[in-house]
Simulated assay, not measured.
Amino acid sequence: MSNHSTAPDRPGEHEEPEPHDLGLSHDLPTLLNRRHAIGLLTAGGLVAALAACSPTTGTGDGAATGAPTGGPGGGSPNDTSQADVGAGEIPEETNGPYPADGTNGPNILTTTGVVRSDITTSFGDSSGTAEGVPLTFSLTVVDVSGDGDAGTPVAGAAVYAWHCDRDGRYSMYDIADQNYLRGVQEADADGKVTFTSIFPACYPGRWPHIHFEVYPSLADATSATNRMRTSQLALPQAVSEAVYATAGYEQSVANLQDVTLDSDMVFSDGYALQMAKTSGSVDQGYTATLRVPV
């Protein structure tokens, strides 16, 4: 398990968070007292483990770190299963131009209420709900630096996840007065976090995806400088096509036809460890799962 950091792929000017917002750091004592500091003790052990790990360098432009080259010939765009367990760490990727983690404009990580599982609605001073086909996605963080192919669940880790809406727009940037489709969750004893959301659009030049950052603990998830991995989840082609055939996703139909995993700026060098396993339907909503080896 190694530490990485990335930078956005293009600069921009955006609004800063409200100065009166006390933020997640203010909420932590309440959260921790409620859990009798169990999560903090778990996170402390993880921080110690991180200190023993030797750092590697990530390029921030989609380069893999010890992962198989699962792009061309590395799996089908309709493959809903990941590569074999023990295939290495999930690739380090760019956090893109709309991270809202303080590296390019606003920082939602310091906003009170960001720790939540349902990210379909805005919170705090914002209001609004993202429309689209329901999607529940789960990420399971495992440490693969030790012995054993399966890895060890990283209990107490924190994951910040974000993605575009069904029109291909990002809150806090394209839609400045909304902060939906962004949230932070603390991993359970199995290293798992789950978010309730909507299926993201396919916008020009990019394969359907979800961004995420992994942090050693909830306490660390207030500054991007503390992240230990930044990556992206890819969604299968067949599922995406089914979703994009529904009302509201019209623009995504043509956009998906114009991009492939092999031409995508992020997944072209390998996506075997980033392709989510999916199930469900348009009527019932979809579920996506991804193992995140770090």
Rank of each mutant, 00 (worst) to 15 (best):
A130F: 12
G148C: 04
T121D: 15
V141N: 03
E186N: 00
F123P: 10
A157V: 04
I119N: 09
T140P: 02
L135C: 09
G156E: 05
N104W: 09
P134E: 10
V114Q: 12
R166D: 10
T129R: 15
G168K: 10
D174E: 14
D165N: 15
G128Q: 10
I175W: 04
A161C: 07
D125L: 10
W162V: 03
Q185W: 02
E186C: 01
R182F: 08
D177R: 01
D174V: 08
P106G: 12
T152S: 13
L181D: 05
I119P: 11
G156V: 07
A176Q: 09
L181V: 08
V114H: 10
W162G: 05
S127K: 11
G183S: 05
V144R: 14
R166A: 11
N107S: 15
G183T: 07
S138C: 03
D167Y: 08
G183V: 07
A155P: 03
M172D: 11
T140N: 09
R169V: 06
V159E: 02
D125F: 02
T120K: 15
P134H: 07
N107G: 09
V144N: 13
H163C: 09
A158E: 06
D167T: 12
E186I: 03
R182S: 13
I108K: 01
T112K: 10
A130Y: 11
Q185I: 05
I108A: 15
G148T: 02
N104D: 15
G183R: 09
A157F: 07
S127P: 05
L181K: 09
A155K: 11
D143F: 04
R169K: 15
T120Q: 15
Q185T: 02
D149G: 06
Q178K: 15
P153I: 04
L109I: 06
P134M: 07
T140M: 01
Y160T: 01
F123R: 06
L109V: 06
R166Y: 03
A150P: 04
R169E: 14
F137A: 00
D177T: 12
M172N: 09
D125H: 12
D125E: 13
D174K: 03
I108F: 08
Q178M: 08
S171W: 01
D143H: 05
T129H: 12
P153V: 05
F123T: 08
D143C: 08
V141M: 06
R182H: 15
V154Q: 00
I119C: 12
A157Y: 08
H163I: 06
T111G: 05
L135P: 06
G146S: 13
R169H: 08
T136S: 13
D118W: 01
F123A: 00
Y160A: 03
V144D: 12
H163F: 03
G151W: 08
V159I: 13
Q185L: 00
G168M: 12
S122E: 10
R169N: 13
E186F: 02
C164G: 11
V114R: 12
R182K: 11
S138K: 01
G124Q: 04
T140S: 13
V159M: 02
G132N: 08
W162D: 05
